[in-house]
Simulated scan of single mutants.
Amino acid sequence: MTENYSKLRQQAESAFGKAQSQLFERQRALDDLNSIVIARNEKTQRLREARLAKELQDRVASAAKSGSKSARKS
């Protein structure tokens, strides 16, 4: 069942369809960018936590090492 639309209506439908598809594409691109930003932030947080844990471990090891040196000198 095909309906006959006026040329003006067909042009309006076509323009609306293009606008809608552009909107959906833009939204999809933004969603992709947002997921990249979220993943990057999560990775940065994991790396920061790992670095801080290693720095703490190094400080504890350094303190233990210097503590044993001073104990030997006494």
Results as ranks from 00 to 15, higher is better:
M1R: 11
M1I: 12
T2E: 15
T2W: 08
T2P: 13
T2M: 11
T2N: 10
E3I: 12
N4Y: 08
N4G: 09
N4V: 14
Y5M: 00
S6A: 04
S6V: 01
S6N: 03
S6F: 02
K7M: 06
K7Y: 15
R9D: 15
Q10N: 12
Q10P: 05
Q10L: 09
Q11M: 15
A12P: 06
A12L: 09
A12T: 10
E13T: 05
E13H: 06
A15S: 07
A15P: 01
A15K: 04
A15D: 05
A15E: 03
F16G: 15
K18C: 03
A19W: 08
A19N: 03
A19R: 07
S21W: 07
Q22N: 14
L23M: 05
F24V: 08
F24Q: 12
E25W: 11
E25P: 05
E25G: 12
R26G: 03
Q27Y: 06
Q27D: 05
Q27I: 13
A29R: 13
L30Q: 04
D31F: 09
D31Q: 13
D32G: 04
D32S: 06
L33E: 15
L33Q: 14
N34W: 06
S35N: 14
I36R: 14
V37T: 11
V37P: 06
V37G: 05
V37S: 12
I38M: 05
I38A: 08
I38T: 11
R40L: 15
R40M: 12
R40Y: 11
N41T: 06
E42V: 06
K43P: 02
T44V: 11
T44W: 13
Q45N: 12
R46T: 09
R48S: 08
R48K: 10
R48Q: 11
E49I: 10
E49H: 07
A50H: 07
A50Y: 09
A50W: 08
A50N: 10
R51G: 06
R51F: 10
L52H: 10
A53P: 02
A53E: 02
K54Y: 09
E55L: 01
E55Y: 00
L56D: 14
L56P: 01
L56T: 10
L56F: 11
Q57S: 03
Q57K: 05
D58C: 00
D58F: 00
R59W: 00
R59K: 05
V60R: 02
V60F: 01
V60P: 02
V60I: 02
A61C: 03
S62P: 02
A63N: 00
A63P: 00
A63L: 00
A64G: 03
A64E: 13
K65P: 04
K65I: 06
K65T: 09
G67P: 06
G67E: 14
G67M: 09
S68R: 14
S68A: 15
S68W: 10
K69V: 12
A71V: 06
A71G: 10
A71F: 01
A71D: 08
R72Q: 12
R72G: 08
R72D: 13
K73E: 14
K73H: 10
K73L: 12
K73R: 13
S74W: 08
S74T: 12
